[in-house]
Design a protein around this nucleic acid. Structure first.
Length: 929
RNA sequence: GCCCAUGUGGCGGAAUUGGUAGACGCAGCAGACUCAAAAUCUGCCAUUCGCAAGGGUGUGAAGGUUCGAUUCCUUUCGUGGGCACCA
């Protein structure tokens, strides 16, 4: 009887589904455990081999925890709103709801073939109105609350109104502008009151920049902008100010930082989030502008210019005497006012240039130094030095005050700027500055720095801030790099905002009006003036409903809660149920979500917690990052203007175009030329220039994507080798957290392993081959070594080494000719999380009536592994020269005697006495000569 | 540019807290079985010198700490991911 994975897998998948084996109850005597995958975006390309990597890992862990006696929640769903579906719809004329539905069906079918233990009754889809009803509902909670800086938590906006009514503007203690009294507040118009409240709401509306493409008449995602022009059509893209919704995530910056100390994420992940939040301590400082220097007319009439000030933010106030110029962000509101007439043309040209540049380009292309002098000068408040004021794209409006004081001797970007524009550099750090590059040390002693002279820079920071505050020139300030999160998209395929606009005031819909359903239209396109497609729909527009929709991360910020209670129609998730399941114990997904999704869902969780809607304020207790499976692309080289293809090694002799070719037509690097000819009509008559009789393709590792023809479909592999082989092979590829290019080559080895396992139970010819004999010590040793290894590897998500331990175990049992049920039965339980189908089948063959899914996990017993002796490696000066078998209980003197008596050691000693003998018990011996 | 990760045989990778580098698997080579093939089994498999015994070199590169470094430190190069409207 041979291993027939096809029959076995379909048999047990049917059996498990008929018996509802994977249904999870919200009530159980067992302790709970919640294992979650980052749910997929159901793209039209279907599942590729990269998707299941994390899913297999979480499935193994879930099954393992179940064997260990936990009530395990392990759900799956779909993040089904998003840009690609919308784009695809525009291109093909199909409605996104239809394509999304179809894609999800494909995904589910593919997932089921791999044998995951999902409870599909708990499936969620973010684009279903019974789901996004609650996304909208949570948005309303965000809209209707503010962050109280005193209590450091979200509270109802009514508590803020009450403060305004009783104490006026300082009640909230936040916005400097809100210096009104309680009486004034009461006299304000409704619109004015709402305008002020908008500065506090956690979900708020304000003006912000978007990528605007005039020709396409639409707002573009950064992804759709390539080198400053639109990806589709290559049209120019500029920044445009538009009304946008935001989430006030900056108010939670400190709590998001603190929360990192309570969760089990990798250090690098925490570091990335910390850097994103970017907390820095420094001070704001005011520079007053001086009337223009002689020879240039004063741009501001009636001496107004002298009253103008520039507020800069710096983390290094200690360098105040090294300031050689100020730089404003090109978008800074003062730019227009301070520019002198002579400089106006230059400045305008520069602003036009900057408008075409993305933030990314502005930050990354530092070698290309650009900037423009405004003609204005500011005064150093401490020594009266005249400082030119420039604008430059490397200063971003969104960070700090949008203005910096440049210290070329201490900051490399400032240094390059000064060098490029011939601005004289003041050295305040003596020999620490070599004139060739900036030195950002804090350990130098300050020179030419007046009251800071002779101080160490790191000590001077405090002194400088105190002086600045004492003289009223500025104040201590904590800044965050993080900005409030843009929350609206000018798109169709997303959650509509439950918001109406009445005379410029945003009015929240009543909860009873939810869900506010996305209107179904056959065709849609961008609305006027960059509005979303909803603006084209008369019945929508007439109701004055908000025309943008929510971004992709809205639905994914809270989906883990909905899985707990997916069918509830009265609340997003019953409090009793979320109190049972609580945090996600293990969350598995890619690092690409490190700062986006993970921060947003942490924010939403904290707000829901503050409002007492859930009982925990961090969503994910532990995070496991899976690496990305990359595609290994193959290329062919077509001689320009022909259908002749030249092999990789000869391509430099011709002028060629590089074309992606489907990896599935290439064996290693050898192209299947017949398959290639049939691939596309263009290639039917292709000619080839070969090397050594073969056509060699070029190789490059890239993201796995349909357009690069480097995707590998898991279905084909499951069909050819079975789900169990596929699962174990994906795990065997390498550490779960490491990125690696996909390569199908090694899958045979895993399949061979499963057949070898099968043959421990069944002989291909004779049939049943297992027996009920008593196992001996050697067999128990193999088993218990494996139990120990598998258990600890599984706990540590080291699945690749676990697979190899299974192989070692089966090899060793094969060598021992062990076919004993007593041993094999335990091995099957260890294996079932990894290869559930074959394990269940063999378990059944051993005569078990109950499913293996709930068997008791074998208990490791140390006694089988106890050793009395060890082959100690013996090194001479750190190089291993021999091994000596020594009793493990031996102590240093005894060991020294044995080692020095050894022939090989004697030879290396050449009669000399050793200087030192290092003995590490149970490890090694090193003789130092 | 900034942030994070990563670099070990022909290939994927292994190596508790610094303690025998290359487990396990793929590919390859040789052999057994077979009319033959598949399947299976046995052996070899970092590199270099050597008939062998044995020795030299070797974990991206260069330094350092240590009795001992793939592991720790410094510098440097390559690759992958993220950088706020892809999800």
């Amino acid at each position: 009887m041979e291993y027939n994975y096809k029959d076995i897998e379909s048999k047990w998948q049917r059996n498990w589904s008929e018996r509802n084996t994977y249904r999870v109850s919200n009530q159980s005597e067992k302790p709970k455990f919640y294992v979650l995958d980052m749910f997929p975006y159901p793209s039209g390309a279907g599942l590729h081999v990269g998707h299941p990597l994390g899913y297999i890992a979480s499935d193994i862990y879930s099954r393992y925890k179940r064997l260990k006696g936990f009530n395990v929640l392990h759900p799956m769903g779909f993040d089904s709103f998003g840009l690609p579906a919308e784009q695809y719809a525009i291109e093909t004329g199909q409605h996104p709801s239809a394509t999304t539905e179809k894609n999800i069906e494909t995904f589910k079918k593919q997932l089921d073939k791999i044998g995951f233990c999902y409870d599909w009754e708990r499936e969620v889809r973010t684009s279903n109105s019974d789901y996004y009803k609650w996304t909208q509902w949570i948005f309303l909670q965000l809209f209707n609350c503010w962050f109280n800086p005193v209590n450091k938590k979200a509270e109802s906006i009514n508590t803020l109104i009450l403060l305004f009514e009783t104490k006026g503007g300082h009640g909230a203690g936040k916005h400097e502008a809100d210096q009104f009294s309680a009486e004034e507040w009461k006299l304000y118009s409704l619109a004015k009151q709402q305008e002020i409240l908008m500065n506090y709401r956690l979900a708020f509306s304000a003006y912000g920049d978007v990528n605007w493409c005039e020709v396409l008449g639409t707002v573009l995602a950064n992804d759709e902008v390539v080198n400053g022009v639109s990806e589709r059509g290559g049209h120019p893209v500029i920044k445009k100010k538009m009304h946008q919704w935001y989430l006030r995530i900056t108010d939670y910056a400190d709590r998001l930082l603190d929360g990192l100390n309570t969760v089990d994420f990798s250090d690098s992940m925490k570091e990335m989030q910390r850097n994103w939040i970017g907390k820095s301590e420094g001070c704001e400082m005011i520079f007053s502008l001086t009337p223009a220097t002689a020879g240039t007319p004063n741009p501001s009439p009636k001496g107004e210019g002298s009253e103008k000030t520039i507020k800069v933010y710096t983390t290094r106030p200690d360098t105040i005497f090294g300031v050689d110029f100020l730089v404003l962000a090109p978008e800074h509101e003062l730019v227009n006012q301070i520019t002198t007439e002579e400089q106006r043309k230059n400045i305008d040209d520069y602003l036009t240039y900057v408008k075409s540049r993305s933030d990314r380009e502005r930050m990354s292309e530092v070698k290309q130094i650009t900037g423009c002098f405004t003609g204005a000068y500011a005064e150093n408040p401490f020594n009266g030095k005249q400082i030119p004021v420039w604008i430059a794209e490397y200063v971003l409006a969104g960070y700090g005050t949008g203005a910096i004081m440049a210290v070329p001797c201490g900051d490399q970007r400032d240094f390059l700027f000064a060098q490029h524009f011939n601005i004289p550099i003041t050295n305040i750090i003596g020999e620490h500055f070599n004139g060739k590059e900036a030195n950002s040390t804090k350990d130098a002693t300050l020179h030419h720095s007046d009251f800071l002279d002779g101080l160490l820079m790191k000590d001077a920071i405090k002194v400088a801030i105190e002086k600045i505050e004492a003289e009223g020139l500025g104040k201590r300030k904590v800044n965050f790099k993080m900005r409030d999160a843009g929350f609206s998209r000018q798109r169709y395929w997303g959650e509509p905002f439950p918001i109406k606009w009445e005379d410029g005031v945003a009015i929240a819909l009543n909860e009873t009006q939810l869900p506010l359903e996305l209107p179904h239209v056959e065709k849609y396109g961008p609305g006027p003036e960059g509005e979303g497609p909803l603006a084209n729909i008369a019945e929508w527009k007439n109701q004055q409903l908000e025309t943008s929709t929510m971004p992709g991360y809205a639905g994914s910020s809270w989906y883990f809660l909905r899985y707990m209670d997916p069918h509830n129609t009265t609340t997003f998730c019953d409090r009793k149920i979320s109190d049972y399941w609580r945090q996600v114990d293990v969350y598995i997904g890619g690092t690409e979500h490190a700062v986006g999704h993970l921060l947003y869902s942490r924010l939403w969780t904290k707000v829901l917690y503050d409002l007492d809607l859930i009982g925990f304020d961090e969503p994910f207790k532990m995070l496991v990052n899976q690496g990305m499976i990359q595609g290994s692309s193959r290329f062919v080289y077509r001689i320009k203007g022909t259908q002749t293809f030249v092999s990789f090694g000869l391509k430099n002799k011709y002028e060629v175009d590089e074309l992606h070719v489907d990896v599935n037509m290439v064996d290693g690097i050898d192209l299947d030329m017949e398959a290639f000819k049939k691939w596309k009509p263009d290639f039917t008559n292709a000619d080839f220039i070969l090397e050594e009789g073969k056509y060699h393709c070029g190789i490059e590792v890239e993201k796995m994507s349909k357009s690069k023809f480097n995707t590998v479909n898991p279905d084909d592999l499951v069909l050819k080798y079975g789900a169990d082989t596929f699962r174990m092979y994906e795990m065997f590829l390498g550490p779960i957290e490491q990125s690696k290019p996909w390569d199908t080559k090694g899958i045979e080895g895993v399949h061979r392993f499963l057949r070898k396992l099968w043959r421990l139970f069944n002989d291909d010819l004779k049939g049943k081959d297992w027996n009920e004999e008593k196992a001996n010590d050697a067999e128990f040793k193999v088993l218990h070594k494996t139990i120990k290894k598998i258990e600890s590897d599984t706990e540590q998500f080291s699945f690749n080494t676990a697979v190899s331990a299974f192989m070692v175990c089966v090899n060793e049992l094969g060598d021992l000719k062990c076919h004993k049920k007593e041993i094999l039965e335990k091995l099957l339980i260890l294996l079932t999380p990894y290869a559930p189908h074959i394990s269940e089948e063999l378990w059944y063959q051993l005569g078990n009536k109950e499913s293996i899914l709930d068997a008791a996990y074998p208990v490791f017993e140390e006694k089988y592994l106890v050793e009395t002796n060890k082959e100690y490696p013996v090194s001479i000066n750190g190089k291993v020269r021999t091994n000596i078998n020594i009793d493990l209980s031996a102590q240093q003197p005894e060991v020294e005697q044995i080692v020095l008596g050894n022939e090989i050691v004697q030879k290396w000693l050449e009669g000399k006495a050793p200087k030192k003998i290092i003995f590490v018990k149970g490890k090694m011996v090193n003789v130092v000569i």
